[in-house]
Amino acid sequence: MYAFDIERPTRLTDAVKLLSDATDSQLIAGGQTLIPTLKQRLAMPERLVSLGAVDEIKGICTGDDGALCIGGGTTHADVAAGAGAYPALAGLAANIGDPAVRNRGTIGGSLANNDPSACYPSAVLASGATVVTNARQIAADDFFDGLFATNLEEGEIITEVRFPVPDAAAYMKFEQPASRFALVGVFVARFSGGVRIAVTGASEEGVFRWSEAEAALAGNFSAGALDGLSLSGDGMISDLHGSGDYRAHLISVMTRRAVAAA
């Protein structure tokens, strides 16, 4: 690590102010990606601004519209324990990383980082959730913007994520053997207005919706409705742990399993 200063504001407004002053600052939430990056000297911020003490962006509640509202600073462990109203989401959080990761990592940090193999982006996109920041509200379909890229502006902080709770949902993760990130993760959510399916881990473009499968399931929410549907391996990530074709195949398998489990 290079030397850096650290600030631990307790109010969101102070965090926003620090990020906009003249010092080169890097926001840190749970640090589960940033800390290893710093240790490898791949980043050298002058100052870290920690969200760890900003309690106003932590916690889980139910909105007036029935949405499950999760503060951006809420850890995976707290989501796993507290999102009982949305069991598929709680289950997803309960299987991120290991206990140490789940007790530090936050939903806001994960979404802002948008790792192409992270679990949360699939839940946000499949749920049609709304990402709330200190400045605005962003629909899930507008939020993700490719590998490690989002619609967030410089210095913008995720304060809350509002998840409409579907009638049925399930997340199926096929783990990369070493990292246990998603080699392929599929989140299926059925609402009265339709089905949304989001896939993480697989595409070179990051998390995406599988619209053909959504259409097939709209009228017949059963694994059988997916028969004959498949994706091409072109544009899928191909690496040591699996070819693009393998990932494309796994998307079909995991989608069927998610539908069956939902």
């Binding site: 070493a178 990292s179 990130f181 040591l240 742990h241």
Partner: peptide, 11 residues
């Protein structure tokens, strides 16, 4: 080395 950490070297 493609497997230079536990992210890619599966223990």
């Amino acid at each position: 080395l493609l497997t230079g950490s536990y992210m890619d070297y599966a223990m």
